[in-house]
Simulated assay, not measured.
Amino acid sequence: MPHFLSLPKRALVIISLSVSTQVMASEVIYSWVDANGLVHYSQQPPANDIKFTQVYNDDIEPQKSGYVSAPTKQPTQSTAAEIASAEALLIKAKDPAQAKMLCELAQEKLKLLNSQNRLTRKDSKSGEQVTLSDQERATEITTQQQRIDEFCPKA
């Protein structure tokens, strides 16, 4: 009568066989570049006299997968000005009353910026009144002059 292995020994044999099968399943991957510069990967070597490289799949380190967003391009100052001009033209074409209001608002702000020495504004983070620096004032004057050029009719 044949002697059968006990249950723990059978489990050990099955595990050993499955591990050895995985080790033997190591595959070769062939890589080569064709005449058009296209890279090919295959488990079969290329035909003819094509130069190729061999890589074993066990030697390849898995890479992290996931999504990486493409870097966004920040608009340049000239691009931002062009966008603002295009938006102004659109507003003037679609809603002349709004364009007139924006023109008058820019004229009033420019008049205020040029007539007052010490101007304050409300800080958006703290909510406190902050005095405009000379640089902020010059920037705001330039901005309002641009808005006048964009929204006010040429005289």
Rank of each mutant, 00 (worst) to 15 (best):
Q74N: 14
K73H: 13
P62S: 13
T53S: 11
I60E: 04
D49N: 13
A84P: 00
T79R: 07
P62T: 14
N57G: 01
S42E: 00
N48M: 09
F52R: 00
A70H: 11
G66Q: 00
D59A: 10
P45K: 08
G66H: 01
Q43N: 12
I83D: 04
S78R: 07
S69C: 13
S85K: 12
S85T: 08
T76A: 03
T79K: 11
A80H: 02
F52A: 06
K64G: 13
N57V: 02
Q43Y: 14
A80R: 03
Q77F: 01
E87K: 08
E82N: 06
Q54G: 00
Y56L: 11
Q54C: 01
I50V: 15
Q54I: 05
V55A: 09
Q77R: 05
P62V: 13
N48W: 11
D58A: 10
T53V: 09
Q44M: 15
Y56W: 15
A86R: 11
S65V: 12
I50W: 02
S65W: 12
K73Q: 14
P71M: 07
E61D: 15
T79P: 00
Y67G: 02
S69M: 15
S85L: 12
A84R: 07
P46D: 07
V68Y: 05
N48G: 13
Q77M: 04
E87R: 09
P46A: 02
V55Q: 09
A80C: 04
A70V: 13
Q74F: 10
S85M: 08
E87I: 04
A81V: 05
E82C: 02
G66A: 00
V55P: 00
S78H: 09
D49K: 05
Q77L: 03
I50D: 04
A47C: 04
S85W: 01
S85I: 05
I83F: 03
V68A: 08
Y67S: 04
A80G: 02
A47E: 08
Q54F: 01
Y67Q: 06
T79M: 14
S78Q: 13
S69F: 15
T76H: 01
E82D: 09
K64Q: 15
K51S: 13
V55N: 08
E61Q: 15
T76M: 03
T72V: 14
Q54D: 01
I83W: 05
Q43K: 14
I83G: 00
P46K: 04
S78D: 14
D59W: 02
Q43G: 03
S65M: 13
K64H: 12
D58P: 02
T76N: 05
V68S: 10
V55K: 01
Q54H: 00
K64I: 10
Y56N: 08
S69H: 14
A81L: 11
E61C: 11
Q54A: 03
I60C: 04
P45L: 06
Y67A: 04
I60V: 13
T53L: 06
A47M: 09
I83S: 03
D49M: 08
S65L: 14
Q63G: 12
G66N: 01
P45E: 04
I83Q: 05
T53C: 04
Y56G: 02
S85F: 06
A81P: 01
K51A: 12
P71S: 13
T72W: 11
T76R: 03
F52C: 06
S69R: 15
K73N: 12
N57F: 08
Y67W: 07
Q77D: 07
Y67D: 05
Q74L: 13
S78I: 09
D58S: 08
E87D: 09
V55W: 00
Q63S: 15
V68T: 10
V55E: 06
T53K: 00
